[in-house]
């Protein structure tokens, strides 16, 4: 097995555990924002997309790359903005009688 693959697998497994640890305690009120926030993070594929679009090996490659960049950007920008909009609405009662 190539060393890079082994390294990747190690990181993958540890990151999954980190994810489970960090997220298990989220209260139900925040399930939707958590999901859409996490969703925005999954737009990290944009990094791969940028490299593919920028390396420019062939026309088809660039086409794939540009569409991938656009898709991932929708995911990132839309995801973070919509989560922020939602969380902005979550307010505790201000004037308690």
């Amino acid at each position: 097995m190539p060393e890079s693959l082994m390294m990747g697998l190690t990181i993958f497994v540890l990151a999954m555990f980190a994810g489970f640890e960090v997220i298990t305690k989220v209260p139900p009120t925040l399930h939707t924002p958590l999901m859409s926030g996490a969703n925005a993070i999954s737009g990290i594929a944009i990094i791969g997309a940028i490299l593919v679009a920028g390396e420019g090996h062939s026309t088809l490659n660039i086409v794939f790359g540009v569409v991938a960049v656009a898709f991932a950007t929708i995911n990132v920008v839309g995801g973070f903005l919509v989560t922020d909009r939602m969380l902005n609405m979550f307010k505790k009662k201000t004037s308690e009688k």
Binding site: I11, M16, A18, A38, S42, I44, G48, V52
Partner: peptide, 18 residues
């Protein structure tokens, strides 16, 4: 794993577990 980039692996796993 395809582009051999750890940030994708880490961020992807976090979302996967969430």
């Amino acid at each position: 794993f395809v582009v051999q980039n750890n940030i994708l692996i880490i961020a992807g796993s976090l979302v996967g577990s969430a």
